[in-house]
Design a binder for these strands. Structure first.
Lengths: 205, 205
DNA sequence: ACCTGAACACCGTTCAAGT
DNA sequence: ACCTGAACACCGTTCAAGT
């Protein structure tokens, strides 16, 4: 505000938004500091006043991605404490949908493009918080008898691994057509998840 | 041979090897057509006589990566048809080890850097063969009562998803220290895998 | 403090030309 | 058929200079 600076006041954020737009429109390979700068309407070297290097910008974009994923997961299942099994499935489905709707961003967040996430505190914080969301849900599933007993964090890891692996292989087109053609994706995910949940069905021996 | 050509006869393969070396020594971000050419001892434009573009080279490198992963998995478990449970764990462990020992190559194979694997027949073939290896193993686990009944390919997908997700999160340093410090990695993997296998332990009611 | 413009070393890719 | 060298449009990053 005030006297109107050189730029619009929040170039840092504009660059992050520009980066996310580039990812959505042109994919990971098109993401460059220079193009983000151009989209934000500044010179190609202006970003270096706000980010130490490209990795630093990538960390900021990934952090924003995790914030959105976290929000998406949080609002995935209605706070319906009764139907906890459904809630686990809906959470997993929210994760899958986020990845499909934000392919390039999801890739940036999880594909080693950010070389050392631990160096970026904000990134480390929000990604850990997202994991805690899952640990919490797992704990409630255990209490409901839907999952085996055992350390909730290890079990959460199993489930997150399962869902994350499912998404990764899906995005990489590593899931064969014959499987995908058998029915809707959400159902396949539910079946896959079902492998890890306790069955309480017909053949109870 | 014969009159000694311009180059050593198999530039195509030399470039693939050079690429794998670059990945191992300097990581994904250092992989360039020009550096591969330099390592192979030719000019920067020579690769274009053998590869249509960088994606084409990446496809060839990824294909070689899958060949090595396939070989590694094949030789992972001794042909010991008795201990089938152990064999599943050893196969998963081989997968994890391959990823840890060839981080950048593994990333290249699975992280969307190759933009459309389906366009490269050799790549599609070997990656599918690798999946079939797992389907086969799963089928035998089902017969041994270690896994639930159901379509073997869907179950294989669950297991591959679980193991692949585990590896991905591990490489991304998304598995918290408190979990990793609790014991050797192979044991954590076994525990994680155990979530999906049928228990035949003490509390059988 | 925040931004610009020139500069440098790198890239992917093409293309005429050489053997 | 296989390779070279010049050329072009891009990149990441630095740095002196401007307000």
């Amino acid at each position: 505000m005030s006297e109107k600076q050189y730029h619009h006041g929040d170039l840092r954020n504009s660059l992050i938004q520009a980066g996310i737009e580039i990812l959505a429109e042109e994919g990971v390979s098109a993401l460059s500091v220079r193009q983000a700068a151009t989209r934000a309407g500044v010179s190609h070297s202006a970003p270096y006043a706000h980010f130490h290097d490209k990795q630093d910008l990538i960390a900021a974009i990934s952090t924003e991605g995790f914030r959105r994923l976290h929000a998406r997961i949080t609002s995935a299942a209605p706070e319906n404490p009764g139907d906890i099994a459904n809630r686990l499935t809906e959470t997993a489905w929210a994760y899958v949908q986020f990845a499909l709707e934000n392919r390039a961003l999801f890739n940036l967040m999880f594909s080693g493009i950010l070389e050392d996430g631990g160096d970026y505190p904000d990134f480390a914080a929000i990604s850990q918080e997202t994991f805690l969301l899952i640990v919490d849900l797992v704990r409630r599933c255990q209490q409901a008898g839907l999952l085996r007993r055992g350390p909730a964090d290890v079990q959460a890891l199993s489930i997150w691994s399962l869902v994350h692996g499912f998404v990764s292989l899906l995005l990489e087109q590593q899931i064969s057509h014959t499987i995908l053609e058998r029915g809707p994706l959400k159902e396949l995910l539910a079946q896959t998840l079902g492998q890890i949940m306790q069955v309480r069905v017909e053949n109870r021996e």
